[in-house]
Design a protein around this nucleic acid. Structure first.
Lengths: 136, 136
DNA sequence: TAACTTATCTAAGTTACTTATGTAGTCTTC
DNA sequence: GAAGACTACATAAGTAACTTAGATAAGTTA
């Protein structure tokens, strides 16, 4: 869908208003941005939805030019999903948006307050890791 | 719907599996638990959905006995929404569940790590207050 | 009191999910 | 090495939480 890609590229600054992406969809795009090409079944495991839901979502995102399906060379049944350039733009754009909203608020905190937030981040990551290790 | 109430009361420990409550629904119940009786329109403002969505959700929750509609004495058009005892049980039950899941994880952190999390909480509250004051 | 506004409700359509099932590639076992 | 079982994904059909558009009834204003 080259037309969709061009449209996204041309107006990427307004992307959030071009198509509203659901929470789950955004989570998938984020996962793909972090982990690179991933099998469809792996997305089923990480997101909290069923496998057909992922199939349908990826079909839509592919039609919009945000992701692409690739054959998995190691398994003829499997499908690898990868972000396109347009897809990476969406993710980066959203991150920039978050930063733009948060920065002016953080600027109004004291140095000590910002330090308290920064000190909590690694603890939260460790907590998340503990929770995840308990599942497996 | 007395039957629904009794069912909720009788089996409240398993409530989360009786009916899956959507994210928005849970947010509304939480808002009602925090702020007490609230006008339907006020819920429209705090949650991120349209007014008809709130009307429909409250109708469902009322049928299940979790909330009740009251006339607003100060405005004949308005409707006040209030948690029932069963609704409060749902909220309390979920909170207990969160505590039960988090506590064993927090126990595995060091004292310093727990202190870092505790120190960040008031900062996050202040940050949220700053964000909210910018909207109005 | 007529015109306007506000608070909620109703109706109809959309969309992101679900469960159930189909299909093709891979593994196992004798 | 072929048959059966399993796995990865796709398709189909139904559900539930939303949406927009429009109706109703209470309150406000000129």
């Amino acid at each position: 869908m080259a037309a969709a890609v061009e449209r996204f590229n041309g107006y990427y600054i307004r992307l959030p208003s071009v198509r509203k992406l659901s929470f789950t969809t955004l989570s998938v795009l984020h996962t793909l941005a972090e982990r690179g090409p991933v099998r469809l079944g792996e997305l089923t495991a990480t997101e909290q939805v069923t496998q057909p839901a992922i199939t349908q979502m990826i079909t839509k995102l592919e039609a919009e030019g945000l992701v692409e399906r690739l054959p998995d060379p190691s398994d003829g049944r499997a499908v690898l999903v990868r972000l396109t350039a347009a897809g990476r733009t969406v993710v980066a754009d959203r991150r920039n948006d978050r930063v733009a909203r948060l920065s002016p608020l953080l600027d109004r905190l004291t140095t000590a307050e910002r330090a308290a937030l920064a000190a909590a981040l690694p603890v939260l990551e460790r907590l998340a890791a503990l929770a995840q290790s308990d599942e497996g």
